[in-house]
Design a protein around this nucleic acid. Structure first.
Lengths: 338, 338
DNA sequence: GCCTGGCACTCTGTCTGCCCGAGTGCCAGC
DNA sequence: GCTGGCACTCGGGCAGACAGAGTGCCAGGC
């Protein structure tokens, strides 16, 4: 177990390193922090911290930098979440309130997060699987061609073109539309399959094929995972990464281009509360020198999607966590209102 | 006027520099290209080319590199467009044909372009202003709340929430929906305002307010320019830019994040034919050391949007132009089919 | 027992001087 | 107008020296 002072030393090292980007030595530490002890004592503490694996030396006779394990301890025990100041909160709220539609909400959220944290922001679109159906619309485009439009409570709209096995009259279509909506409107996606199961039986035999086709398209749309879109922004902030660029930045950019990777990344995060993955805790190799701070957000009490930021392990964790949490909260509010 | 051989020398310089990324000297040139003259002669030609501003020396006693003006001449006079090979064409077609909806078409196009050219790809969504209306749907969500869904011939769907000034019956809504569609379905966006102008007059006095509100929302949606979305990809290719990164890459990343900048960039390109903007020809400062190759694409003979790539001025112009042209052509085909 | 000041040691980053190679410009000759 | 030759310039790479920062350890003091 580490003594109180050693934890303080670790905290000081993390804070200084995050600020200066340079390995921090014992002398500088005592000068900048009121530890009440001399550099020599701090050196002893540092040696202990190094033995435990919390900090490391890039090379002999350099200062120390925190390891992933050190950051982990810092985040878990030594630092809280820095709340946003009232003016900041107001700015966030104002900025998000100007949004005109869902795309805009997401786009604004990305910008905001990127600006506040000066890092790369990732925002997942409110997910279909968690939300409820507001309305299903069926449009006849041709005798045997129907367009399905699904509107969700988060304001998202999905459309699918359907080629029917047989021509389908306008009356039958209206009938199907009415029955469908009375059953699924306001229901959660996960309940829909059960609710429409027996629907084909209510129709004439010659229409059943089409009804089934429409229903299965609807169900596909509901579960379609590749439709989990997301938006990223602030990649220019990657240039602040370190001085040894190309090698560091390239794999990160590559990872960010792969929506699949990002979705998995956000998916791995806890559903509730904030998740911080530090360095090698990230499964994806390209992100081994980054940390990901993510949190769920949603219109009700429930999270419908996640958002977060990707930055160097050497990041301002309290500030970043504060910003992420605040943004998630306000986005949730905006979604609930609209 | 430059002699034939001097043009050949310029062409050789561009080709070598693009290949090696290093200033090219007279000796290397004569070795790699069959110019039929000695290095000394080439040196004289180089001096002339430098006087004219086509090439430059990074410093005394280094080889020469092309200037923007040199690339311009190269693109205009010295190089053609390198056609894709049949296998490449087939690969492009196969890859694009797998797309399931418009989003997917655009996403695949971006990936494809980025991979083929190994540069940053930018694809504009088929623009609303050029296309036609397939269907307008109105849904009553609450007594005084209507959702407008606009479906375009390119498969794009836009939705807007409308708060009505007065409650609006289901019958009136159906009436409006029918009248609206009979007038605008299949028509170009630009014609819509004229076509719906007198529509409110057909309704009872108490409904006119709502009808007008709906119509104006529709018109807004049609012209809404900020809805000109685009997608980019291949930013990881920026890391191949040069060895002096941070300074070069940062402004480019920043420019790429600004949709407005990119839209303007594509907007500046000619409507037909391929546009190549080299280095300082780009209005945006951050892109002064990049070239942009763009071209319009569309489902019919007409361009509905643009796509292109952004790369270092030192790029393989013939190859890039070939890839951009080929992709645009096939995307056009895919859009026409769906 | 813990903290402290002092001292020797190590390593990095930087600066200097040096040399080599690549490339040029120019000139005289064919 | 082309060519070979020659002197000149400049950047890159390498070795050595040096200053600065930081450490580890030890003996002494509270």
């Amino acid at each position: 177990m580490l003594s109180e002072r050693r934890l303080q030393v670790l905290r000081a090292i993390v804070q200084d390193y995050v600020g200066t980007e340079e390995p921090v030595g014992s002398k500088a530490l005592t000068e900048r922090h009121n530890l009440g002890v001399s550099p020599a004592t701090v050196r002893n503490d540092m040696a202990a911290l190094e033995d435990e694996g919390y900090i490391a030396q890039p090379h002999t006779s350099a200062g120390r930098i925190p390891t992933d394990k050190g950051y982990r301890l810092f985040v878990d025990k030594l630092a809280g979440v820095k709340p946003m100041s009232p003016p900041e909160r107001r700015a966030i709220q104002n900025f998000l309130e100007g949004a005109v539609d869902l795309d805009d909400v997401v786009a604004r959220t990305v910008r905001l997060l990127a600006q506040l944290t000066r890092q790369v922001a990732v925002v997942q679109y409110p997910s279909l699987t968690r939300s409820t159906v507001r309305h299903v619309e069926l449009l006849s485009l041709a005798p045997a061609r129907v367009m399905l439009v699904l509107i969700t409570d988060t304001g998202r709209v999905e459309q699918r073109m359907i080629d029917c096995p047989a021509p389908f009259g306008e009356a039958s279509l209206a009938d199907l539309r009415a029955r469908l909506n009375s059953r699924v409107a306001g229901r959660r996606f996960t309940d829909v399959p059960r609710l429409v199961e027996d629907l084909p039986e209510a129709f004439d035999i010659e229409d059943r094929g089409t009804v089934s086709t429409v229903l299965s398209t609807l169900l596909e749309t509901l579960v379609e995972e590749n439709e989990e879109r997301l938006m990223i922004g602030g990649t220019a902030n990657l240039t602040r990464f370190g001085h040894d660029f190309p090698l560091t930045i390239r794999p990160v950019l590559e990872a960010l281009e792969e929506q699949v990777v990002l979705l998995k990344l956000l998916g791995e995060a806890k559903d509730s509360g904030m998740t911080v993955r530090i360095g090698h805790e990230n499964a994806h190799e390209g992100l081994n020198s980054t940390s990901v701070v993510s949190v769920g957000y949603g219109s009700g009490g429930e999270a419908v999607a996640k958002l977060g930021v990707v930055g160097p392990t050497r990041m301002d964790y309290p500030g970043t966590m504060g910003a992420v949490r605040a943004v998630a909260r306000y986005v949730g509010q905006i979604l609930a209102e609209s």
